[in-house]
Design a protein around this nucleic acid. Structure first.
Lengths: 119, 119
DNA sequence: TGGGCATATGAACCTCCATTTATATGAATT
DNA sequence: AATTCATATAAATGGAGGTTCATATGCCCA
């Protein structure tokens, strides 16, 4: 099942503290490597390595401008995914969960699990 | 920043192929360890270990019934998160992304990144 | 074209964690 | 009470990946 493994790889790529911080910064605005390096106070090579990993998962893309290379999210929904995930996780840690009710047949709630495509 | 690390830990917990498969099964219905073991065709101790990891992140909870222990998701939104994430990742792999436009001030789109709380 | 700045790459190290093997706990059944 | 079934736990192993250090690439400017 390559799908599950791709998805797992994707989640692990996001699920690394430094990369997650990078993504949260890129959710606000495009940033070049130097900015990320100084904001996060990490080694430049480390930031480059992580950006490479993010790029290989198509999470991030680059744009070169003179010597500098600017990075941004490839997709606006990534920012929302991260925000959703953070909020949910916080509630889980506080044990404020919404009971699961396994339903019989037929998804009566229309379009519940969809990706919303608005800006 | 413990929040980022908690979130990263949460994502990594989901981002392991076997655990992700477990979660997808639990998104359908409650399952006991034996069922998970045979469906996934993995060692029973491995499944137990993974269930433990999921439980420590409050992603999963247990209910004992005689000798069997049944597991389910702690929160219905987890199933949606996983579905959303899978769909988004598939599109990213196909390079079908929705351009990011960094906006100036004021989140005009009402409540865009929220957790929806319906069933 | 030489030198400095910005970023990328490579190799080595080390830690974390998934998996296996073996054994323990604990409930039900006789 | 002993046996069997279902699950949990502990220790050992192996591999993946995060971090650092050193160096390479590439662009700009004098």
């Amino acid at each position: 099942m390559p799908i599950v493994e791709d998805q797992a790889r994707f989640l692990r790529c996001i699920g690394e503290p430094t990369r997650l911080q990078i993504l949260k910064l890129l959710a606000e605005s495009e940033r070049c490597v130097g900015e990320l390096t100084s904001v996060l106070n990490k080694e430049q090579s480390l930031i480059s390595h992580h950006l490479r990993a993010l790029k290989e998962c198509n999470i991030v893309k680059e744009r070169q401008e003179a010597q500098k290379v600017y990075y941004k999210l490839t997709d606006a929904r990534l920012a929302r995914l991260i925000i959703n995930c953070e909020a949910l996780m916080k509630e889980l840690l506080l044990c404020e969960s919404q009971e699961v009710n396994y339903e019989r047949k037929g998804n009566q709630g229309s379009g519940e699990g969809e990706i919303r495509s608005d800006s």
